[in-house]
Amino acid sequence: MEEEFLSHRHSNYIFIFLLAVCTLLLSARLSSYVRGLKDLLFYVVIPSPQSAARFIQSGQKLSENLTQIVKVHQENIELKKTLGRYAFLENEYYNLKRENTRLRSIAGLDIPGEKKPVIAQVIGREPSSWYQWIVINKGFKDGITIDAPVISVVNNVPVALGRISESGVNSSKVVLITNILSALPAMSRTTNEDGLMEGQNSGTLKLNYLSRNLSVSIGDEIVTSPLSYVFPSGVLVGKVEDIYQHKDEPYSYAIVKPAVNLNSLREVSVYIQVK
């Protein structure tokens, strides 16, 4: 009992002492001694919260990395499946190509030559003729010839961009499909109805010479026609935005929005003939 009482007193004395120290610090907080003490304590105390914060941050990074690994793993599984499907399609493609070549030779038709893509960067574009042409950094040294088709890729889908009009040693000029000089045989993907896609020096194209019975409708995808001399058949050109029909004219026409984003052209593919 006596021991307990003494411990209580002991505790009370320490409390009074600590209170006195605190009051002293409060009263003399601006003196150099107190500032020195504060600086000293700062170097003792501050590393622990900082280390804790770093620990938490590294933990967060670890969890982010783990999430990324899981995502990449899932993506890898998906891509492997896709690759397997493409391998099957590639095999099918070569079989059909061989069959096509054999049948064309039996029928006495010309056999189309092999084409390969050459990737080029867009290096020039004039603001005053934005929808007319671009300059790319590959020329005849790279095998690029006049009238070679130029294709861009949008969302992993090849889309028609233009054709080579001039070819220098290390650069070429591409006439865009939106150029008023450009005319490209195209057709509706759903109805196979042919028309002539004409550039208008603007952000839209005009699909002319459509029949009056309106087999093309708004939203239809327009692709290059087998009649095209420049482009391979079936390359996406754009989507029908509007259809116009005048009672005095024998044909109707459609306004098509190009699939390619002409404001963000960076890399393009030029398809050249393999010798």
Binding site: L19, C22, L25, L26, L41, F42, I46, P49
Partner: peptide, 17 residues
């Protein structure tokens, strides 16, 4: 008190109490 910009000694006194 060391890591804050409050009155130096104030937190020490209050937490002691």
């Amino acid at each position: 008190d060391v890591v804050s910009v409050d009155l130096f000694g104030s937190h020490a006194l209050l937490l002691t109490a």
